[in-house]
Amino acid sequence: MTEVEIIQKLQRGNEQAFKELVENYQKMVVNTCFGMVHNIEDSEDIAQEVFIEVFRSIHKFRAESKLSTWLYRMAVNRSLNFIRDNKKNKWFQSFEDAVQSKNAELSRITTGDSENPEFELENSQRAILLHEAIDNLPQNQKVAFTLSKYEDLSYQEISAVMDVSVSSVESLLHRAKKNLQKKLYVCYKKKCI
């Protein structure tokens, strides 16, 4: 089924078309959300919300942009909303919950090939450090960086998703990398790892 056929069938309420749409774009949406929230369970939950929104509002889709662009936009917006809500909830989160979520994140990163636990631990610390550095970027820089690094999108594609010019995307990515480099250098000096 082509993209156009999927959209047309989905607009008529065809369930098989919805299944095919989810299968085709699941990895892309989950990956984008993961780049934003850095947690696989949360990113799957957000991706599900994205597909539910697609199912409910497919009749509004006028094919002025690509379906993937529409999905990327929804994934980014939903992830940003999730991060905003999570920040609010953090004030009310108990210390135990915070520790539990950190441990869960650590164990998620370290599970897998455990032949070299030292290497695994170092990698997990690197991952946490990198996630924190990305999270501290200004919002637009973070979105541009995530789409570029996690999804390998071109400047043109990122500009379509973010609704900004290509030169703006270029500038955002340049600043994002500089900021990231600065944060990683500070951490290297402090011997974080």
């Binding site: 989810v22 990895k27 990956n31 539910i52 990198l130 996690y150 990683l184 790892i193």
Partner: peptide, 29 residues
Amino acid sequence: EMRKTLGILEAEKSPAVNPFFYTRLKAKL
């Protein structure tokens, strides 16, 4: 150090696809 840290991004790029994703999505819907 920087090369190793940025290399994490490559490793994270393709998370495993959850086989129950559609089932869970349908139930939620």
